[in-house]
Amino acid sequence: MQIFVKTLTGKTITSEVEPSDTIENVKAKIQDKEGIPPDQQRLIFAGKQLEDGRTLSDYNIQKESTLHLVLR
């Protein structure tokens, strides 16, 4: 499924993921596309910071959901 990751600069990254993918996994995909190390990434969805060990389905993230990427 496709999800969108919006950066603070307003850029939107499209990523191909599975509901069973972990947040860590998603951060790795963002690193592949943007070159941002996962340890600098914080992903936010519905006002919550997403934890690395959890999966997209844990957070009820569905296709075409938009996550927000904040850098630390």
Rank of each mutant, 00 (worst) to 15 (best):
G53T: 10
H68P: 00
A28H: 12
A46N: 15
E16I: 14
I36H: 08
L69G: 00
P19R: 07
P19T: 07
S57T: 08
K27V: 04
M1D: 03
T66I: 13
V70Y: 13
Q49K: 09
D32C: 08
M1F: 15
T55V: 06
Q41E: 02
S20Y: 11
P37V: 05
A28T: 10
F45N: 02
E51D: 09
E16H: 11
T12L: 13
R72Y: 12
E51P: 02
Q40N: 09
L8G: 10
H68L: 15
A46G: 12
I30N: 01
L56W: 03
K27C: 02
D52T: 05
D58A: 05
P38V: 15
T9A: 12
T55G: 02
G47P: 00
E51A: 08
A46K: 14
K29R: 09
S15A: 15
Q49N: 12
E24R: 14
E18T: 13
I23R: 00
M1S: 03
P37H: 10
I23E: 01
D39N: 12
F45V: 02
L43M: 04
E18M: 14
T12H: 05
L71H: 07
I30Q: 01
N60W: 04
V5H: 00
K33C: 07
D32F: 12
G10M: 04
A46E: 14
Q62T: 13
M1R: 03
I61Q: 00
I44E: 08
L67A: 01
E34A: 14
L8A: 13
S20N: 12
Q40H: 11
T22C: 03
A28Y: 13
L69Y: 02
E16L: 13
E24N: 08
Q41Y: 15
V17F: 12
L50K: 00
T9W: 15
K27G: 01
D58S: 14
G47F: 05
I23L: 04
E34D: 06
E64I: 02
K6M: 10
L56H: 01
G47S: 04
E51R: 09
K63H: 15
T7Y: 14
I13L: 09
I44Y: 15
T14C: 09
S57G: 10
P38W: 14
D39R: 11
L67W: 00
Q49I: 15
L56K: 00
K48V: 14
A28L: 14
D21F: 08
K33W: 08
I36Y: 13
F4S: 05
N25C: 10
D39T: 10
P19G: 07
K11S: 07
K6I: 14
K6S: 06
G10Q: 03
D52G: 06
L50Y: 01
E34C: 15
R54K: 13
G35W: 03
D32W: 10
T55A: 06
K11P: 04
Q31G: 10
L69E: 01
G53I: 07
R72Q: 10
P38H: 12
E16V: 12
M1K: 03
T55D: 02
D58E: 11
I3E: 02
T9I: 07
E51Y: 07
I30H: 01
P19K: 07
E18A: 12
R42S: 11
Q40V: 11
S20K: 08
N60E: 07
G53V: 07
L8S: 14
S20R: 08
Q41S: 06
V26I: 11
V5A: 02
A46W: 10
N60T: 04
T66F: 07
V70M: 11
Y59A: 02
D32Q: 14
E16K: 09
M1P: 03
K6H: 12
I61N: 01
K63T: 12
K48T: 11
D39M: 10
K33N: 06
F45I: 03
L71S: 08
P19H: 06
D32S: 12
L71M: 10
E24W: 15
T14A: 09
D52E: 09
I36F: 11
N25E: 12
E18F: 14
L56Y: 02
S20V: 05
R42Q: 12
I13V: 06
L56E: 00
A28P: 01
D58I: 03
L71D: 06
K48G: 05
I13H: 04
D32M: 13
T7S: 07
I30L: 08
Q40K: 11
T14L: 12
F45P: 00
G10V: 02
E18N: 13
I44A: 05
V17T: 03
T22L: 11
E34F: 15
I36C: 04
K11Q: 09
Y59F: 03
E64H: 14
E51S: 07
G47K: 05
E34H: 11
L69A: 02
S20P: 03
D52Y: 04
S57W: 08
I23S: 02
K11R: 12
P38R: 14
I3P: 00
G47W: 05
E64Y: 14
D58L: 03
G53S: 11
D32R: 12
G35V: 03
F45E: 00
R54Q: 07
L67P: 01
E16N: 11
V17G: 02
F45R: 02
P37T: 06
G53C: 08
E34P: 03
I36R: 03
I13A: 02
P19I: 08
S57N: 09
H68R: 09
K6T: 10
S15V: 15
E34T: 15
L69P: 00
E64A: 10
A28D: 06
D39W: 14
S65N: 09
Q41H: 05
P19A: 09
L8H: 13
F4M: 06
K27D: 00
E24Q: 12
R54Y: 13
I30P: 01
Q40T: 09
T66H: 15
I44V: 10
G35H: 07
E16Y: 14
P19D: 06
I23W: 02
L69D: 00
S57L: 11
R72W: 13
K48Y: 09
F4W: 07
A28M: 14
K63F: 07
G47T: 04
R72E: 11
K11D: 07
P38N: 08
T9Y: 14
T12E: 05
E24G: 13
L67Q: 01
K6Q: 10
S20E: 10
I3T: 00
G53W: 14
T9G: 13
P37R: 09
L67Y: 00
K6D: 03
Q2Y: 13
K63C: 07
E24A: 15
H68Y: 15
I13D: 01
P38T: 15
D58K: 02
V26R: 01
F45W: 09
T9N: 13
E64L: 11
D52H: 06
D58G: 03
T9C: 14
Q62M: 11
V17N: 03
F4A: 04
I61G: 01
T22K: 08
D21I: 04
V5G: 01
H68V: 13
K11F: 10
K11Y: 13
E24Y: 15
F45L: 05
R54P: 04
N60C: 06
I44S: 08
N60P: 03
L56Q: 00
E24T: 08
G53R: 09
E18R: 14
R72K: 13
V70E: 10
K29F: 11
S15C: 15
I3W: 01
D52P: 06
T14K: 09
Q49T: 14
Q31C: 13
I30G: 01
P19M: 09
T22V: 04
M1E: 03
Q41T: 09
K48Q: 13
T66K: 04
E16F: 13
V5N: 01
R42N: 11
L8I: 12
I23Q: 01
T55E: 03
S57D: 08
S20A: 08
Q40G: 05
P37K: 07
Q31S: 13
I44P: 00
L50E: 01
Q62E: 10
